[in-house]
Simulated scan of single mutants.
Amino acid sequence: MRALLMVQCGQSPVVGPRDLAGRGTRVAVTAAPITPLDLLCASGTSYFGAPAVPYVPGVQGVGTLDDGTPVWFATDAGMRAGDGSMAEYADVDPSDIVALPAGAEPTLVAALGLSAVAAWQSLTSCGDLHHGEQVLVLGGGGIVGQAAIQIARLLGARRVVAACRSAAAQSRATSLGADAVVPLRDNDTVADLAARLRPALDGPLDLVLDPLFGIPAAAALQVLRPGGRLVNLGGSASPTAPFDSATLRSGSLRILGYTNTTLTKPERAETMRTIAGHAAAGRLTVSYQAVPLDEAPAAWTAQATGTAPARMVLSPSAR
């Protein structure tokens, strides 16, 4: 079969032949997203350690079983020995396979994937979002942020504010249902950003979803109501944030951390089914671009350098 192969950590992958191991359930891959976790694992610098090469990257994908059942699936590619989703076929542990509802568009479900799972769980089990609360989504133009804007609405938030960097991201957040959008700027200070956030809010801010950390997180803490919650699930702006003890104590604020790795497989499967159901019903979408396998190396580079216009999703079965 044809596959995308990582032959050396830290370099672009190549398209080449690969034998299917045949130790799990065979899935004919329809769509495989290039995600930040794929890029991190392939860099050889993740906390999982450098993966043995060559290997097929792809920690998740969408495809069909031999009987035609459409499924979403997860793999440990780049984290443990074995190949992933970026090939014409994947070997998958049966416990990592989730049947999809009728009408779920494969490429959209792949683009949503674990990013949408993280957004859902951050807002619900971790952030404890209640009906009628006001939510701030930092990084509202990213996949997690795009999903979070819509999910907060689905869960009954009365107002959703997004903070985004580019004009395209700001427009995207508005189109997905954000009531207000605040620009993020390269030269922001905590005080400057907090001053822009305050007039975008309508009453108390209850919950912040934060995949950025850094100055955006510190500014969000300045405008949270007493007892408000900030859920951090990433550090794409900075691995550290400049906030102080007085800010936390004076507002009795709660900072919570989230990662998908804490989910059990049944919890992940149930959340993925929920996400796919909303997508099939037209209630949940994100921006993505489908790419044939032959163009995967260029798509990989674009995703890694931040020049991709959207989440790049490979279509291994397309010729």
Results as ranks from 00 to 15, higher is better:
Met1Glu: 09
Leu5Gly: 10
Gly10Asn: 11
Val15Arg: 13
Pro17Gly: 12
Ala21Met: 02
Gly22Ala: 10
Thr25Cys: 04
Val27Phe: 09
Ile34Tyr: 02
Thr35Arg: 13
Ser43Lys: 08
Thr45Val: 02
Phe48His: 15
Pro51Gln: 14
Pro51Trp: 09
Ala52Ile: 04
Val53Trp: 08
Pro54Gly: 14
Pro54Trp: 13
Gly58Phe: 05
Val59Asn: 09
Gly63Gln: 07
Trp72Lys: 01
Ala74Glu: 13
Asp76Arg: 11
Ala77Arg: 08
Gly78Val: 06
Ser85Thr: 02
Asp93Gln: 09
Asp93Val: 03
Leu100His: 06
Gly113Arg: 15
Ala118Asp: 04
Gly142Asp: 06
Val144Leu: 15
Gly145Trp: 04
Ile151Thr: 03
Arg153Asp: 04
Ser166Pro: 03
Ser166Lys: 05
Ala167Trp: 00
Gln170Thr: 07
Arg185Gly: 01
Ala194His: 05
Leu197Val: 01
Asp210Thr: 07
Leu212Val: 10
Pro216Leu: 05
Leu224Tyr: 07
Leu224Asp: 07
Gly227Ile: 05
Gly228Met: 14
Gly235Cys: 08
Thr240Ile: 11
Thr240Pro: 02
Ala246Lys: 13
Arg249Gly: 00
Tyr258Val: 00
Pro266Trp: 12
Pro266Ser: 14
Ala269Met: 08
Glu270Ile: 03
Met272Ala: 05
Tyr288Ile: 00
Asp294Val: 12
Asp294His: 11
Trp300Gly: 06
Ala304Trp: 04
Thr307Asn: 12
Ala308Gly: 08
Pro309Asp: 09
